Measured scan of single mutants.
Amino acid sequence: RELEAFAERFKQRRIKLGVTQADVGSALANLKIPGVGSLSQSTICRFESLTLSHNNMIALKPILQAWLEEAEGAQREKMNKP
C-alpha cells in the first residue's frame, strides 16, 4: 500500500514540477548516490504505473524520494529568490 501511495504521490509531484520521466532518469546520476547512475524513462514509467517487480520498487523508492526532495528544494529556492 505504501509503495502504491508513494508512486502516485511521486508522479503528481513530478508533473507539478514540470519534469519529464526522462529528465528524472538522467537527473538521478547527479545525486551521486553510490551504485546509482541514470535510469531509463521506461523504468520511471514502470515505477509510476506499478509494473516493476516489488523488489525493484522497494529498491527505487529511496532513490526517487531523494531526487524528489532535492528537486522540490531547488524549486523552493528558485521561488524565494527576488
Rank of each mutant, 00 (worst) to 15 (best):
A71T: 15
L68P: 01
G25L: 10
E8R: 12
A7P: 02
G18V: 05
T43S: 07
A71S: 08
Q21D: 05
Q21C: 08
T20S: 07
K11L: 03
I15L: 11
R14M: 00
T20E: 07
L3F: 07
V36I: 13
Q12S: 09
I33E: 05
Q75Y: 08
A5S: 12
V19R: 11
G37D: 08
K16L: 08
N56H: 12
K32W: 05
A71K: 15
N30L: 08
V24S: 01
G25I: 09
A66D: 13
V19K: 12
S40N: 09
R1H: 03
V24D: 01
W67L: 02
G35M: 05
L39S: 03
A22V: 04
T51Y: 03
N80H: 13
M79K: 14
I44G: 00
L3R: 01
S42E: 12
A74Y: 12
R1K: 15
K11N: 03
P62T: 05
R1D: 12
K32Y: 04
E48K: 01
D23Q: 13
R76I: 10
I63V: 12
E4T: 10
P34L: 05
C45M: 13
E8H: 06
R9K: 06
D23I: 02
R76H: 12
E70C: 07
P34I: 05
P34W: 03
A22D: 07
M79Y: 11
F10P: 00
K11Q: 07
P62Y: 02
Q41E: 14
E2F: 04
P34R: 07
S49C: 08
V36N: 03
S49N: 15
F47N: 00
Q41R: 10
G73H: 08
K11S: 07
L17V: 04
I58K: 15
N30E: 09
A71N: 14
R9Q: 09
L31Q: 10
R13F: 05
G37K: 08
E77T: 08
L64R: 01
T43F: 02
S26G: 10
E70S: 12
A66Q: 09
A74Q: 10
H54A: 13
E4V: 11
Q12C: 02
L68K: 01
N80L: 10
F10Q: 00
T51V: 07
Q21M: 07
R46S: 11
R9Y: 10
R9A: 15
N80T: 12
M79F: 13
F6Q: 01
E4L: 06
L31E: 11
P34M: 06
S26I: 05
F10N: 01
F47H: 00
K81C: 15
G37W: 03
L3Y: 07
E69L: 10
Q75I: 09
Q65D: 13
G18C: 02
V36W: 03
R76F: 10
E8C: 04
E72C: 03
I63P: 05
T51D: 14
A29D: 05
A71I: 05
A27Q: 09
S42K: 15
L28K: 02
A66R: 11
Q41H: 15
T43Y: 04
K61F: 03
K61G: 04
L39F: 05
Q65T: 09
C45N: 08
I63C: 10
K78N: 10
F10E: 00
E4I: 15
K78T: 04
H54W: 11
K61S: 06
G18D: 03
E4K: 14
L17I: 07
S38Y: 02
P62I: 01
W67Q: 01
A27W: 08
L64G: 01
T20W: 00
G25R: 07
L31N: 06
G18R: 04
S40Q: 08
V24F: 03
I33M: 09
H54Y: 14
K81M: 09
E77G: 10
N56P: 04
R1A: 06
Q21T: 08
Q41K: 12
R13S: 13
A66P: 02
N55D: 07
Q12M: 10
E72M: 03
S26K: 10
L50F: 14
A74N: 11
L31M: 12
T51I: 05
A5V: 09
A74W: 06
L39Q: 03
A29R: 15
A74R: 11
K61W: 08
I63Q: 04
A71D: 02
S26E: 15
L3D: 03
M79A: 12
Q12W: 03
E70P: 01
R14H: 00
K11V: 06
L31P: 04
S42P: 05
E72F: 01
E8W: 04
L50W: 04
R46Y: 04
L31I: 10
L52D: 05
S49G: 12
I15R: 10
Q21H: 12
R13A: 10
S40D: 14
I33A: 06
W67K: 02
N80I: 07
A7S: 05
Q41I: 15
A5Y: 05
D23W: 03
P62W: 01
Q75K: 12
A22W: 10
S53Q: 11
M57P: 02
R1S: 10
Q41T: 09
S40P: 06
F47I: 00
I44C: 00
V19L: 11
K61R: 09
G37C: 09
S40K: 08
S49Y: 03
I15H: 08
S42W: 05
T51S: 13
N56G: 11
M79E: 14
R13T: 12
L31V: 12
A5W: 05
W67C: 00
E48T: 00
S26V: 09
L3K: 02
R9S: 14
F6K: 00
H54I: 15
A5C: 06
I58Q: 10
F10C: 00
R46K: 12
C45Y: 10
W67Y: 05
A71F: 04
